[in-house]
Design a binder for these strands. Structure first.
Ligand SMILES: [Zn+2]
Ligand SMILES: [Zn+2]
Ligand SMILES: [Zn+2]
Ligand SMILES: [Zn+2]
Lengths: 173, 173
DNA sequence: TTATTTATGTTATAGCGTAACAGGTCAAGA
DNA sequence: TCTTGACCTGTTACGCTATAACATAAATAA
C-alpha cells in the first residue's frame, strides 16, 4: 500500500500486484500514462480536474467516495461542490479509466485502461484494499446463466468481499 | 408481472418463472410459506412488521427501495420512520429471506429461501423486473479467479443489467 | 416475579447523488 | 474578425439513502 524501494522484477498480474508490496509510485505513474494514451486515442479530453481526480484515485489500491475525492480536488483549487467530483468521476468511468464499486458507493482507478475487460473486484474487508481481477471466465459463466433464461446481459457488477492475502495471514494467526 | 389465470404446469426454473406470465399469487404465497418454514427452523422471529415487509417484496418480481417499503408499512399501521423499514429488511437479508440489490439501492424477496445459494441477479432495464438465477457456476469461477491471487471470498454481489426475454423481443421489433 | 434480551418506535443527522442554472473556454464557420 | 455552438467548470438547491442514539414495550429466561 506504500512505496517500498527495490522492485526490479517484471510486472505480475495486476490483482496480485494490488495486494503485494510494490513500487506504487511507478505503478501509479505507469497506469496514469496509459490512461492518458487511451484518452488521447479516444479523443476524450482529460482536462485538469479530470486528470487530477484520476491521480487521486491512483494514490492507493482502494476505492474512494466521491466526497473524499471532492475534498482533495477542492484543496487543489478546484470547485467545492459535489457535481465537480461526480462529473469528473463519471467521465473517468465512461471512458474506462475508473470503475464504480457499488458495494462501497465509491470509485477506483482502472488498473489496465484501454484493454477491453470484464472486471471483477476483490475488496478486502480488513484493509480496504481493492483489486481488479480478470473476470472473463466469471463473465462467461454469467452470460451462460443469463442466456439459459433468455436474458441479455449488457453490464455487470461483480464484487467480492473477503480477505486479501496479507489479511488472511493475519486472521489465521 | 401480474396474475394470469391458469397455470397448472409444474414450477420451472425460478429465474425463468420471474420473466414469464404465471399465477403470481400462488408463486408469492408459496414462497412466503417456505420463508416462514425457514424462519421457524432457524428460530428466527418473523414478527408482523417483518412478515409484512416480506409480503410487500413478494408482490412483484422486482426490487423495492427501503422508503417504498416503509410507505407501505406505514399505511398498514406500522412505524413511519426509516429504521422501521431498514431493520425489517436487514432481518430478512440476514436470514436469507431477501436480498439486497446494490445496483438499485433496493431489496428483493428471495425466491428460494432455505436453499443455500449463490444468487445472481438479472435486472431488466426496460421493465424493472428482477430475477434470481442460479449462480453456482458463476460463483465457482469467481472463487477460482480470487484464489489465483490469494484472495478469500466471503460474500459476493453479482448483478447483471440488461433485457429480459420479453423486453428483448420488444427491442428487436 | 424479576432480570435479561430482543423488538419497535421516535428524533435527529450523516452520507450519497442530481437537477437546474450561470459563466467561461475554445474552435469552426460566416 | 466576429459569431455561433459545443463543451467544460462552477454554483445553488434539493432529494434520496442510510444510520446513530435514545425511549418504550414485548418476549424470554432465571
Ligand atoms: Zn500499485
Ligand atoms: Zn487486506
Ligand atoms: Zn411470481
Ligand atoms: Zn423486461
Amino acid at each position: 500500500m506504500q512505496d517500498i524501494p527495490p522492485q526490479p522484477d517484471p510486472q505480475p498480474d495486476p490483482a496480485t500486484l494490488a495486494f503485494a508490496r510494490h513500487d506504487h509510485s511507478h505503478c501509479a505513474g505507469d497506469t496514469l500514462a496509459r490512461a492518458e494514451a487511451v484518452a488521447a486515442e479516444r479523443g476524450a479530453r482529460l482536462t485538469p480536474v479530470r486528470r487530477r481526480a484520476l491521480e487521486i484515485l491512483l494514490e492507493a489500491h482502494r476505492a474512494m467516495g466521491a466526497y473524499e475525492v471532492l475534498d482533495r480536488l477542492a484543496a487543489d483549487g478546484f470547485g467545492h461542490q459535489p457535481p465537480v467530483a461526480y462529473r469528473a468521476l463519471e467521465f473517468l468511468v465512461e471512458h474506462g479509466l475508473a470503475h464504480r464499486i457499488r458495494r462501497l458507493n465509491a470509485f477506483a482507478a482502472c488498473m489496465h485502461p484501454g484493454q477491453d475487460h470484464a472486471p471483477v473486484f476483490l475488496i478486502c474487508r480488513a484493509c480496504d484494499s481493492v483489486a481488479e481481477a480478470a473476470g472473463e471466465p466469471v463473465r462467461a459463466a454469467l452470460d451462460t446463466a443469463a442466456a439459459a433464461v433468455g436474458f441479455t446481459v449488457e453490464r455487470a457488477n461483480i464484487e467480492a468481499l473477503g480477505l486479501c492475502p496479507a489479511c488472511t495471514q493475519g486472521a489465521a494467526a
